[in-house]
Design a protein around this nucleic acid. Structure first.
Lengths: 223, 223
DNA sequence: CGCGGCATGACAGGTCCATGACAGGTCCGC
DNA sequence: GCGGACCTGTCATGGACCTGTCATGCCGCG
C-alpha cells in the first residue's frame, strides 16, 4: 500500500510518514503542489493525505484537478480548525474524508486504513485466508489463533497479497507497494526475497503463494 | 497518561500538577486559552482539567471549540462555587465532569482517574494480568498478593501497558504518556530504560513485556 | 538443452534494542 | 541544613534482529 503525504510542514510530514511507515505503508512526501503533481503523475497511490494550506496553492485546487483528470484515488484532507466551512467544500470537491488539525496520529492511521479498506470494497477490518487471520489495525497475524511473528516488510507484503485474494499481483506492483522513493536503490529482487521468507513462515498455514511465471504472485488457499 | 491543566492561578496549577504527577500522570500546564490551544494542537491528552475563568476568555468557549473540532478528550471542569448555573452549561457543552472550587486534591485525583478509566471502557478500578494486581487509586502493585515496590515512573509505565492489554504501544506513545513538556530534554532512550527496569522487577509475575521491533512494546501473560 | 525468470542460502551493513555503570537531583530523617 | 538513600536519566557498549545484495542453482518453457 502506497501513500502520498502532501504537507509543507516538514516535521508534521515526517511524523505522519513515520507513523504510516510503522503501519506498513510505503510513504512519499511532497512539500508543495508542484511536487505532489509530479508524484501523482509518476506513481499510483492507494491514498493521498492532503493538506489544504500549501506554499504554492490550495490543496482543494489540486484535488479538483485530480478529479477532473479522472483520478479517483481516496483523498484524506487535513484542515485547520478555523477552516470549518472549508471542510464541507473539501467533501464537495471530492475528498473522501477529512481530519482537523491538530490530529492524533493513531486517528490518522485509522482513517487511512478505513479508506484503503473501503477502496477494496471490504467492510470487515480483518482479513482471513485458510488459517491465516490478519488484523491490520493491531499489526498482528495469527495462524490458527496463534500469533505469527512477521517483520514490517513481511507484514506489508502479506497485506498486499491478502488484500487481493485470488488476483495475481505483478512483481512491480508489489514493489511499488512495499518501497517508497526514499528506498530508491532497492533492487526488484527484494520482492522475491520477501516472497521466499513469507512462504517459509506461512508453511502449514493453509495458504500458499503461487508463482505465475512472468506475471507475478497470487495467494490462495490450499496447503 | 497525559493531562493538561488549564488554570491561570499558578499556585493552584502547580499544586494540581504536582498531585497528578505523584499519581503517575505526565502534566502540562497552560495559563490561558491561547496556551491551551497550542498544547492541544501539538499533543494528545487523556484528560483536560479546565478552569472556567481564564484571563483571555471563558473555558467553556474553549471546550465548545474543542468539541466542534471533533476532539472528544475527557474534560474535567473547575467551577467556582458562585457559578452554579455554569456547571449545568459546562456539562451541556460537553464536559465530562466538574469540580467545585475549592476542592480537595485527592478528590481531583480520583475524578481524573475515573475519567481515564471510563475512557478505557473499564468499570473495575483494578487492573490484573497474570499474577499482577495493580490498584491505580492506591498506587500499589501486588504480585501474587505481595506488594511490589515500584517507583513513580515504573508505575506509570506499567499503568500504560496494562491499560491496553494485548495492544502494542509505540515508544513515542509511551514517551508521551510518561513525560511532560517540562521534561523536554529527556531522550527517547529513557523508555527503553524503564522497560528494562520494569522487566527485571516483574520477573516471575506471570506477565512479560514483549518487544516488537520497530513497533513498540506489549504486555501479555506468560513467561 | 539453453535461456530467462525465479528460489534460496549466505553474508554484510545497518538499525533498533538491552543493559551495566555513572552522575546529578530529590526527598527524607535527623 | 546536612547526609544518605533512592530515584532519574545519560552514555556507551554489546547484541539481536531486520534488510537487501550477491551468487549459485533450480525450474519451466521453448
Amino acid at each position: 500500500m502506497r501513500v502520498l503525504v502532501v504537507e509543507d510542514a516538514a516535521d508534521v510530514a515526517e511524523a505522519v510518514a513515520a507513523a504510516l511507515g510503522r503501519a506498513g505503508y510505503a510513504c512519499d512526501i511532497a512539500g508543495d503542489l508542484a511536487a505532489a503533481r509530479d508524484h501523482v503523475g509518476v506513481q499510483g497511490y492507494d491514498v493521498v493525505v492532503l493538506d489544504i494550506n500549501l506554499p504554492d496553492g490550495d490543496g482543494r485546487d489540486f484535488l479538483r484537478s485530480l478529479r477532473r483528470g479522472g483520478n479517483r484515488v481516496p483523498v484524506l484532507m487535513l484542515t485547520a480548525r478555523i477552516e470549518v466551512s472549508a471542510r464541507v467544500d473539501a467533501l464537495d470537491d471530492g475528498a473522501d474524508d477529512y481530519l482537523v488539525k491538530p490530529f492524533d496520529l493513531r486517528e490518522l492511521e485509522a482513517r487511512v486504513r478505513a479508506l484503503t479498506r473501503r477502496e477494496a470494497g471490504r467492510v470487515e477490518a480483518r482479513l482471513r485466508l485458510g488459517a491465516i487471520d490478519y488484523d491490520p489495525s493491531a499489526q498482528v497475524v495469527r495462524v490458527g489463533g496463534k500469533p505469527l511473528p512477521l517483520t514490517r516488510r513481511e507484514m506489508a507484503l502479506l497485506s498486499l497479497l491478502m488484500g487481493h485474494p485470488g488476483h495475481i499481483l505483478s512483481k512491480e506492483r508489489l514493489f511499488d507497494g512495499l518501497f517508497s522513493f526514499a528506498d530508491s536503490e532497492v533492487g526488484v529482487n527484494a520482492v522475491e526475497l520477501y516472497i521466499a521468507r513469507l512462504r517459509k513462515k506461512l508453511a502449514g498455514s493453509g495458504a500458499v503463494i503461487e508463482t505465475h511465471r512472468g506475471l507475478g504472485y497470487r495467494i490462495a488457499e490450499g496447503g
